[in-house]
């Protein structure tokens, strides 16, 4: 089975120039954790997720130092939240995006999701325009379709 058979075709994308807060509202409304980001030519230029927002707010050294935030409401984090208001999606989005084309096999997509630790993969055409998206659940639904009817 190929990915074009199961991908979601009407993909909502976020323009790179909108504010982070506006983009988060979209994620919250759609109850999803991430969306593809497109440039002015509607070409895929990044991926924006809730994780990117959290990473921006928390100190960059958090992974190295482990448990290190002492006070309940650290002023450093409050300052970063204030800064976040002025940031645009393009400032914090992940620019290296793993993509597949519509003829990729489902098992290959599943492999990419596991090895690269990603939840959803945009499907792009030759012009790098988003023509679909596939999430982990879509892959699982396709693989287990005979048993979950």
């Amino acid at each position: 089975m190929k990915i074009k058979e199961i991908m979601i075709r009407n993909v909502k994308s976020i323009p790179a120039n909108i504010s982070v807060i506006e983009a988060f509202k979209i994620l919250a409304e759609m109850q999803i954790s991430g969306l593809p980001v497109i440039d002015e030519n509607e070409k895929l230029c990044g991926m924006f997720t809730e994780k990117d927002i959290l990473k921006t707010i928390l100190p960059s050294y958090i992974e190295t130092v482990g448990k290190f935030v002492y006070v309940e409401n650290p002023k450093g984090i409050s300052a970063k939240i204030l800064e976040l208001i002025n940031l645009k999606v393009k400032d914090i989005m992940r620019k290296e995006v793993v993509t597949v084309d519509e003829d990729t096999a489902i098992c290959e997509v599943a492999r990419i999701m596991i090895t690269q630790k990603i939840r959803r993969i945009p499907v792009v055409n030759k012009e790098n325009k988003v023509i679909g998206i596939v999430a982990r659940q879509d892959v699982l639904r396709a693989l287990l379709k005979d048993y979950i009817k």
């Binding site: 100190p59 290190f68 650290p74 002023k75 450093g76 300052a79």
Partner: peptide
């Protein structure tokens, strides 16, 4: 790395 993290906490 740890000293800088501590300095930021207190300076913040």
């Amino acid at each position: 790395i740890f000293m800088v993290a501590a300095i930021f906490q207190i300076c913040d």
